[in-house]
Design a protein around this nucleic acid. Structure first.
Lengths: 151, 151
DNA sequence: CCTTGACCTAAAGTTAGGTTTAGAAATTAT
DNA sequence: ATAATTTCTAAACCTAACTTTAGGTCAAGG
């Protein structure tokens, strides 16, 4: 069924679960780089399936697309990545994941205390040390927190 | 120093670390309801400090503003919330937090397997069971995942 | 009294991460 | 050969959660 070599964008979409439009968008963001066939249509390597899966996982961890692009830059450019290559770069995700788990556990353990204190400059307050704010998009809250007075 | 009773929006902003514009925005979203002084300026209760702190924590857990509004609706309307009131409604946050921690731990434990498998319909793949997608804004990826073929 | 800084509203702009639309060209199926 | 899918590009649109701007008003200090 392949006219020439490679997967079409539709095939890639079906097999990753991403929308075609999302895959094209990722290309504009430098996350994936297909070649073109004679008719100008995008063609992808099989390794791109794994690449997009990696993008999806990294997104769940709260990485932005530019961050994911940077992580992916750790893959070899001159050859198809091996499983060892993938495992190597996913170490960075694992570190991030562990940090995030630790932050959330700390927050859970301090939840009552935080609610009680209003989270103003208590040194043991998890919110006061927002190590990893996956949620912060755009400018977002400033989180300055000057002196604490009584609530 | 207070002209009349209550905190001004600037005072509230300084003490929560939020931007003044954010606090006004929260009001349009029904998260907080100040009264107005004679000159038409917003005045807040001290309990609103805690209320905004709660909003900030809930946001870190990935709740949307409408969801937070709903949780806050569990506070008594006719009196200032007690610490017990706050603890009661934060149970919902704790459940959410525990779910999220579990998801991330599962993902961490399967990370290599996921990268290796390309995350296509392996039953033990954490991505295949995205129980709690805090990151999903808007329409987002479809995550359909039909049949797995060899990668 | 006058000035300065905090505050007001309404509307428009911003960012990330996409989707939708429109119209045309390529591919695949019959 | 023709019809039905897919794919193409560019540009506009979308949502959440805010910020910025513009043009005025309020409050506090000297």
């Amino acid at each position: 069924m392949p006219a020439s070599e490679g997967l079409s964008i539709g095939a890639l979409a079906r097999r990753t679960g991403l929308a075609v439009s999302a895959i094209r968008y990722y290309e504009t963001q430098g996350l994936i780089a297909p070649w073109r066939n004679a008719g100008g249509q995008r063609r992808y390597q099989r390794a791109d399936l794994r690449r997009l899966s990696f993008v999806m996982i990294a997104q769940q961890l709260g990485l932005t697309l530019p961050e994911i692009r940077d992580v992916l830059a750790g893959l070899p450019g001159n050859r198809t990545p091996t499983r060892a290559d993938w495992t190597r770069i996913s170490t960075r995700l694992r570190d991030r994941l562990n940090q995030r788990i630790a932050t959330l556990e700390r927050l859970r353990d301090n939840l009552d205390g935080c609610i009680g204190c209003g989270c103003l400059s208590l040194p043991n307050c998890a919110l006061y040390n927002p190590a990893d704010r996956a949620a912060s998009k755009g400018p977002g809250p400033r989180l300055v927190l000057d002196e604490a007075e009584s609530l």
